[in-house]
């Protein structure tokens, strides 16, 4: 029996005294590419923080490859949501290098193996040309590539990416998602990637983890993104509409989309 890359069983998570997710359980098989979906505040970031060992579990257990989660696990790579830029004057290379064994005490000195690791990570995401430029002069997509390079430094087997497609234009979204997918395949990494729109991930995802109303549902796109499954999850009438190779999740009655599932990338999916 294969140990799953990630196993969450009967976990309850709270933020600021409020229960965000109640008694959720799921297991992610090795090498799976999982899209984590859910409205704002559904608990996507909270789940990621719990998987990193940063969020105390109210109950239940989380294991990564059979080992209970703990802070600073090098096997888990993390890319936080993009935030206000600090140190924009530094070059892309310096920015990535700061994350290389950044938790160790001492001077920020790389050494030859360190420099080689940074170069290799930059090459893996096609960002060698960004190495010498000040980060403040880069576009959102270019900065994402640097952040992705940082996650690769420790050669993780599980990658947690928090909204890596946010603030990208639709064409870049698809390109970035495909790049991450190819990287994951090449390095046999398991990927959990949150997104507010399912469409750029269609055809790339093996599984969907859908978070809503304190619950979580894991399965294939065809199993989870259906009118029946999401209606049960939301405990309210929800329609899944497929049109033009895209998917829309729509609340009944109001007709307003529960999420902005309007991707104008014009792509097709398998």
């Amino acid at each position: 029996m294969n140990i799953p890359a990630l196993e969450v069983s009967h976990v309850t998570l709270a933020r600021g005294g409020q229960v965000v997710l109640q008694d959720i359980s799921f297991a992610v098989p090795k090498g799976s590419f999982v899209g984590v979906l859910g409205a704002n505040g559904a608990g996507k970031t909270t789940v990621f923080r719990a998987l990193l060992g940063l969020e105390p579990l109210q109950s239940g257990t989380v294991t990564v490859q059979g080992v209970p989660v703990h802070q600073g696990n090098p096997k888990v790579g993390y890319m936080p949501q993009m935030r206000k830029l600090v140190g924009g004057q530094l070059t892309g290379w310096s920015m990535v290098a700061a994350a290389r064994k950044g938790q160790k005490w001492g001077l920020p000195w790389c050494g030859r193996p360190g420099r080689a690791a940074v170069d290799a990570a930059l090459e893996a995401v096609d960002a060698q040309d960004l190495a010498k430029k000040p980060v403040a002069s880069l576009s959102g997509g270019q900065r994402q590539r640097l952040l992705l390079a940082q996650t690769l430094l420790d050669d993780p087997s599980l990658l947690l990416l928090d909204e890596p497609l946010a603030s990208l234009d639709p064409a870049r979204m698809r390109e970035t998602a495909a790049r991450i997918h190819a990287l994951a395949q090449a390095r046999a990494m398991t990927v959990l990637m949150s997104a507010h729109d399912i469409n750029p991930l269609l055809g790339l995802m093996d599984h969907v983890l859908y978070l809503a109303r304190g619950k979580a549902l894991l399965g294939t796109v065809d199993d989870v993104i259906t009118t029946e499954a999401l209606t049960a999850l939301y405990n309210a009438p929800v329609d899944v509409v497929r049109a033009g190779g895209r998917v829309f999740v729509v609340a009944e009655g109001g007709g307003a989309a529960l999420q902005p599932h309007d991707c104008t990338g014009g792509h097709t999916h398998a």
Binding site: Q71, P80, G87, A98, G102, Q103, K104, W105
Partner: peptide, 23 residues
Amino acid sequence: LAFLSRPLLFASLQPELAEAKGV
């Protein structure tokens, strides 16, 4: 400062990531 500078640089540039890495 010499002892501190590496994690301090990391934590200054990317607090969330540094926290995840055990800083």
